[in-house]
Amino acid sequence: MNTSEPKLDNEQIKTMINAILDKYRREEGMLVSVLHEIQGEYHYLPRPALEEVSRGLKIPLTRVYSVATFFKVFSLKPRGRHLIQVCLGTACHVRGGARVRDTIERDLAIKSGETTPDFTFSLESVNCVGACALGPIVLVDGQYNGQMTIEKVDSVLKKYA
């Protein structure tokens, strides 16, 4: 199994979540922002964290879980330290985005939507990130890499590995 899956300490999570909740004044309406912040911290939404949010905001766990599973940005599965997003929007697609994705999939030996066993990278595809003229685009941790080619994949990933 994955040995480097991030180990979580429940006490640490509790403290962290409560700090985040305080920052948002424990307002129920801030749920999405709270979840964003948690994901920023852990790269995904750990179950104990969601349970703590439900307790802290005094809202049912069902609501937290519904929201957390509704938005595509949120992941309930552990994700890698770096998130690679390959744009497959119309413009990037016609410029060969899919080939770039295939190359990344092969290099990292994972499929889109998966995470490398050492939790370095997670890979996913997105639909248009608003920079069509520079396509195909590959985002790593939100950083744009324009005019991607299969040859450039290696050098881009090297910066993070």
Partner: peptide, 24 residues
Amino acid sequence: SAISLVNRGVDRQMATPFFDASAT
């Protein structure tokens, strides 16, 4: 509040949180 609709689009389902036995 033991159950709710979860996920989105074609994956939408009626379920308990984490698809586990409900505590509530």
